[in-house]
Computed example of a mutant assay.
Amino acid sequence: MRCKLLTAAVVALGILVTGCSTLEKVVYRPDINQGNFLTPADVSKLQKGMTKQQVAYILGTPMLQDPFGSETWFYVFRQQPGHQDVTQQTLTLTFDGGGSLSGITNDTSMMKQEN
């Protein structure tokens, strides 16, 4: 009886001391995708001089628009696969006063996963 109690205490103490950090890769984490998923083929269809309607037809509605006007559109896609680092793609489209596409900036960044 005393041996079983001692074994149980050692196992419980071992679990408390190691915590979940050693089992991190075993624990399931779902992939989390947020925002506008854009394929390179869709982005390559963009050309300067296109109207806002043409851009919206190709890419859909933007996630964010410039709060001080509608001359800049932001398409943001953030992907956090399971136990890997987070990646974020930000496509920034700038329109001139006439509503035609004048600037295209495509940035991809990688962020360290927060624990």
Rank of each mutant, 00 (worst) to 15 (best):
Q53D: 05
P67G: 05
T51V: 15
Q65H: 11
L59V: 01
L59K: 06
Q54V: 12
K25Q: 12
P40A: 00
P81M: 15
L59N: 02
Q53W: 15
T94S: 08
K48C: 04
G35I: 05
Q34G: 04
M63R: 07
E24H: 09
P67T: 14
S44T: 05
N33R: 04
L46E: 02
D31V: 10
V26N: 01
T72V: 14
I58V: 13
I58T: 11
S44G: 13
A56M: 15
T90N: 10
T94E: 09
T72F: 10
D96I: 06
R29C: 06
I32T: 13
K48W: 10
V43A: 14
L38V: 00
Y28G: 09
P81Y: 15
A56H: 08
W73V: 11
N36F: 00
V55H: 02
Q88H: 04
Q65A: 03
Q88K: 15
Q79D: 14
Q54C: 12
G69T: 09
Y75V: 01
H83T: 02
Q88I: 10
I32D: 12
T51H: 07
D31P: 13
A56L: 09
Q89F: 11
D96L: 08
Q84R: 14
P67V: 15
T87W: 12
P67M: 04
L93H: 03
L91W: 01
Y57R: 05
Q79W: 05
Q88D: 05
T87I: 07
D85K: 12
Q47G: 06
Q54M: 09
E71L: 15
L93I: 11
P62M: 00
T51P: 09
L23M: 08
F95L: 10
E24R: 11
G69H: 03
D31W: 00
K48N: 05
D96G: 08
